[in-house]
Design a protein around this nucleic acid. Structure first.
Length: 429
DNA sequence: TCTGGGGTCCTAGGACCC
DNA sequence: TCTGGGGTCCTAGGACCC
């Protein structure tokens, strides 16, 4: 029985790489992808990073730079990125049957059964296969724990001489890099914990690893203690092959233009509630209460600020769009006040339950017509799957009307892989 | 003009119970 | 001098992740 080994593989500048797969002109030029509403830069190629564009930088601040330097700018195309992510994971599964899909561009693989000397060759083979079959460049980090695999991945990404693979289960590599990685590069160390570690005298990951267990627990609770153990090679985090059922679900959006009237706010919140229903139904979950919130923007200096949220309780758990929508718009009416420029709104649920096993209300005490509702929602979902999201919407709350508040996606590329009418066209001479 | 969205986990403190 | 103790549940807030 050998010690554990995990690999963390991730796509380099993943969203940008997805765009590059379908447009050869993007090779070797700076590319960035923006967040919702074309707000901030959330993915940058190395060429864009070299121009000084930082992660999360608001686009309006760098627009002039982008124009001057010929940066190619894209809105987020989640349909494309989600589909490319599934393809990349399909390749990973061929290299290790035990995999945890950690995020849209990162997966952990269990390599415990792979001999030590075979791990790096396997990682190199996997990189080349993913590149050949999907077009996505990746980096692979290997370590005795998930935290060490993350750290190895960071090294693989930042040290070009390693060729995209770093193995910290190799004791020589482990000693070399642990002494050279700053504490704030460790997975789970954010700005607050970085300050605490600095106060404890840590300048490297090795220093963090060698901290006294009680001291780190005192300063950073069990989270810090777990982190130190993981750095020592003692696994505290398991591979989560099956995604645990989610506990909450939210749909929140900033408005493209500020909202000042109740009708528009109701329309926006109704749209969010509709989306929430879709998400819950896809996972068979339901909720018996919906929180509605909306607030102004702190960037609107010299304007009155307001932030409200209200919980609307339902008689029993549901994921029926019509019920959620009615509850959400009721919430808006309950706490609406004129005279503010609202910047963002959302609907949030917590305490989700599997709908099929949930407690029913008594007949006559608010019990919903579930049989009818389930059939109706199934028909609605089927239509929207076939004809595109929003093809069929409830006629209430103005959902079919023009939306002035909608999120901006002004530079979105075609949904090459998920929409027949947006397939790339190839011309042969 | 323009500043993302969606999660998880942990702790502290208050309310409440017997 | 002495003024119960121990438990659960809930919420808000902080921190972190991608």
């Amino acid at each position: 029985m050998s010690a554990r080994a995990y690999a963390l593989s991730d796509g380099n500048s993943f969203y940008c790489s997805c765009e590059r797969v379908f447009d050869a002109r993007l090779a070797r030029v700076p590319v960035i992808v923006l967040s919702n509403n074309d707000g901030c830069a959330v993915a940058r190629t190395s060429e864009a990073k070299a121009l000084g564009i930082r992660m999360g930088e608001p686009y309006f601040k760098i627009r002039a730079l982008c124009r001057a330097q010929g940066v190619r700018v894209y809105s987020s195309n989640y349909a494309l990125y989600g589909d490319m992510s599934a393809r990349v994971n399909a390749v990973y599964r061929g290299f290790s049957p035990r995999i945890e899909v950690y995020s849209i561009d990162e997966s952990f693989l269990d390599l415990s059964d792979v001999r030590e000397r075979d791990r790096v060759p396997l990682a190199r083979d996997m990189r080349e296969t993913v590149r050949a079959w999907t077009g996505i460049p990746t980096c692979v980090g290997i370590g005795a724990t998930k935290t060490l695999a993350k750290l190895a991945n960071h090294v693989a990404k930042t040290v070009p001489e390693l060729g995209g693979v770093c193995d910290l289960t190799d004791p020589v590599q482990y000693d070399h890099w642990m002494a050279r990685i700053a504490p704030d590069e460790i997975w789970g160390v954010g700005p607050a914990n970085a300050r605490k570690l600095e106060a404890l005298g840590c300048v490297s990951a090795a220093d963090v690893r060698d901290l006294d267990t009680r001291a780190v627990r005192k300063a950073m609770t069990v989270v810090g203690e777990r982190l130190v153990q993981e750095l020592r090679g003692v696994p505290c985090l398991n591979l989560e092959e099956l995604a645990p059922t989610r506990k909450g679900c939210a749909v929140t959006r900033s408005f493209s233009d500020r909202v000042e009237d109740r009708a528009t706010m109701e329309q926006a919140v109704a749209a969010h509630a509709t989306r929430l229903g879709e998400k819950l139904r896809r996972e068979g979950l339901g909720t018996d209460h919906v929180t509605v919130f909306f607030h102004t923007s702190e960037h609107d200096r010299d304007r009155p600020q307001r932030s409200v949220s209200t919980v609307v309780t339902l008689p029993e758990a549901t994921n029926d769009t019509l019920v959620l929508l009615k509850a959400a718009t009721h919430g808006v009416r309950k706490v609406w006040r004129d005279g503010y420029r609202y910047a963002k709104a959302g609907v949030v649920t917590t305490d989700l339950v599997p709908l099929a096993a949930s407690q029913r209300a008594l007949p006559g005490f608010g019990q919903l017509d579930r049989e009818h509702g389930v059939a109706l929602m199934a028909a609605l979902d089927a239509c929207n799957r076939r004809f595109g999201r929003g093809a069929v919407v409830p006629a209430t709350a103005g959902l079919a009307e023009k939306r002035d508040w909608s999120t901006k996606f002004e530079m979105r590329s075609p949904r090459y892989t998920t929409r027949l009418d947006e397939l790339p066209v190839v011309a042969a001479a």
